[in-house]
Design a protein around this nucleic acid. Structure first.
Lengths: 152, 152
DNA sequence: GTTTATGCAAAACATTTGCAGCCTT
DNA sequence: AAGGCTGCAAATGTTTTGCATAAAC
């Protein structure tokens, strides 16, 4: 049975890139932390646990490569760092994010909420959409509950 | 009659901030380039034409202040710089952007496209939305026409 | 006069690049 | 031997900070 790593390996090979041990370690970290939104530094520190000799520049180069191959998406929530988010396999569109302004948590919405909106934009603005970024900033349900508790 | 600057001045005063000449020059540059998406450096160079003695740090501090007051929105299109975009007065929500991947042009959509989507998110994800960021990446109508011309 | 804001230079970060050495073929 | 890939260190580019001075209240 073919694993996710195998498929990424094939994707690399099809573009004449190799899945080196460093690249594999980096991809594994991303797979193991699929729910998180790691910065390059975060990835570096986690990869170092498996492959202590790796350099930060290699992690940057790998993340750039994976972005190019659309294995990951590079996102930016407005703090000074880029974050790297694994794309769902076969996902037509990049998923959306809910960023909590109280606690900083980032949740994901996998559903495609923009189907109708994109039709309107393509028709009314004559813009051919290739990708999108949608992030909501607000208060997550956990922080709403925290407030309920302290209210009385 | 009250001008836009006057209203921003009042907003500053209400939070115990002053509208210094440097801040005023910065705000004027933003007003005069409302359609653009200027980086801090861009703003700095334009402000220098009016107030040559201003320092880059002051521009950064002013832009930070205006972001805090929600006079401008700090946005990031994925190149390494933050851009500052004047909020429409009285606009309930931040407007949306169309970024062309061919020529880099950034167009704005003032219409609120997300009304329905936000209702769904608030209901189904129990998330209280305070703000949003929506950017489409694709090909603008100008670049589509350029291609038409070269086609034959 | 005390606070607030400024300009400058230095510092802090995130990211990129140059390059010599290392694998893999 | 040639190519791609790596690690390190240096360079780059953006944004922030410290501090002494200047302006505003």
């Amino acid at each position: 049975m073919e694993s996710r790593i195998d498929r990424i390996k094939k994707q690399l090979h099809s573009q004449k890139y190799k899945l080196t041990p460093q690249r594999e370690a980096t991809v594994r970290v991303l797979l193991e932390n699929e729910k998180d939104h790691l910065s390059a530094e975060d990835v570096y520190l986690l990869v170092k646990e498996k492959a202590p000799e790796i350099g930060l520049a290699t992690v940057y180069r790998t993340l750039e490569l994976l972005t190019e191959l659309k294995v990951v998406d590079k996102i930016n929530f407005g703090d000074g760092v880029s974050r790297y988010d694994l794309r769902r396999e076969g996902a037509e569109h990049f998923h959306h994010h809910l960023v909590c302004i109280e606690c900083g948590a980032v949740d994901e919405i996998q559903e495609d909420l923009l189907g109708d909106v994109e039709q309107v934009v393509e028709r009314d603005w004559h813009f051919i959409i290739k990708d999108h970024r949608l992030t909501f900033h607000g208060i997550c349900y956990r922080c709403q509950n925290k407030k309920e508790e302290t209210k009385d």
